[in-house]
Amino acid sequence: MEGIYKLDLKDIPLELKLLIFILNSDNEKDIYDELNSKLDIDWKLFLKLSFHHRVFPSIASKLKAIKANIVPEFVTSNLYNAYKNNTINMLYLLGETEYIFKLLKASHVPTIFLKGPSLAVDLYGDTSSRTSSDLDILVPFQQLEKAEEILIESGYIKDDYFETVLNDWKWRHHHLSFFHPEKKVKVEVHWRLHPGPSFEPSFEDLWNRKRKCRVSSVNILGKEDLFVFLVTHGARHGWSRLRWLIDIHKLLEQKVDWSKVVSLFHEYHSVSLAGHAVILSSVLLKTNIPLEMQAMSNNKKSKLLAQGALFYFKDMINLHDEPLAEEVAKYHRHYLFSQMSRPQKILFILSFFHPYPEDAAIFPLPKKFHYLYFPLRPFLWALRKRKKHAVV
């Protein structure tokens, strides 16, 4: 299981280890023997983990092929019902993907689809093997307002309003959310791949390297850009869902210009992100790692980050469940900072000197005087901290 890398897996629940074993194996007899040897499995936890990690489509398919009464019926029926519903949902989202793409194309808005059904087809070969709860599209920042107008005219409602001061939303945030009340579809319109401050490619570079999806006319990221995007996205979420790591596993097995990938990670100061993603994929999913990527993972920082990511696997942590427990929030802040390269850390620290919306909330000024928040920033930060401690 561990390939050329080593991780301490003692804190990983037995049920999650079984889940990973099933995901790794295509041999029905091996799966049967493994299931037959695990008499102390908490099947309710196994089911919860399947849904939490968004891997239930693959688990449902593999368990259905095992024609034996080893797994409780409530587990297999729940998994298979979810699998069928996901297949219908993904086909529905694929239709909406085409619809939105044609809408934006007709108005000359260049669009790249980042995830959703197009990613499922690209990595898994079909829409039913991966889950997706929304659609993510990337447009040039200059076309953001136009894309927003088009979606609203087609029945979508803007679902993302955030406070801002001195236009910090342009670089601190990276997408707007829209929801269609009748279609029950959520669309995230990105003008950046990730929240700032960060180093990332321009839209023009991504557009020049884009591809067409195999089963539709939509644009998707080039394979090399897709790998960098998926690694950075998964790392930002602590790899807290196995699905993100399986995406990496699937792409590592495809034909990709790995020399170009290495170059991109160096260009965007993310070598350690690539390194620890490769280690996790190798250890947990038995991925065969290309030589170029092995070289990126052979350093102490990548190994420490890979081991640190297992924190999110121990207790089924969901980073979208807010407010997070203080222990989890503190660990995640530290983990994100430890991922950064030195230039990223400098950029991140410098970003604290730019005013925050909270500064305007605690000390309102007319908009024409907002520039004063720069010299006032240290004092307002201290005041907010003082008030917070007073409340506690």
Rank of each mutant, 00 (worst) to 15 (best):
I152C: 08
S118M: 01
S58V: 15
Y124V: 02
F74S: 01
E163H: 15
D134W: 06
K67H: 08
K105E: 03
D40C: 06
Y124L: 02
Q142A: 14
Y156R: 14
K102W: 15
I157M: 11
I112D: 14
A60L: 02
L135S: 07
L35D: 03
N81M: 15
A147Y: 02
S154F: 11
P140A: 04
K29V: 10
V109H: 05
L93E: 01
E34Y: 12
E98H: 11
L79Q: 00
S77K: 06
D122R: 05
V55H: 01
I152E: 09
L104D: 04
I59P: 02
N69A: 06
Y92G: 01
L114Q: 06
T164K: 15
L104F: 06
D42I: 09
A68T: 00
D33S: 10
I152K: 14
S58A: 14
V109G: 08
L138Q: 11
F51P: 04
L119H: 06
D122E: 06
N86E: 03
E145C: 07
Y83P: 10
V165T: 08
K146G: 05
S50I: 03
I157P: 15
D160A: 12
T127W: 10
G125M: 04
I70K: 05
K146I: 05
E34N: 12
M90Y: 03
G116T: 00
D26R: 05
N89H: 13
E73T: 10
N36P: 07
R130Y: 01
P140H: 05
K38G: 09
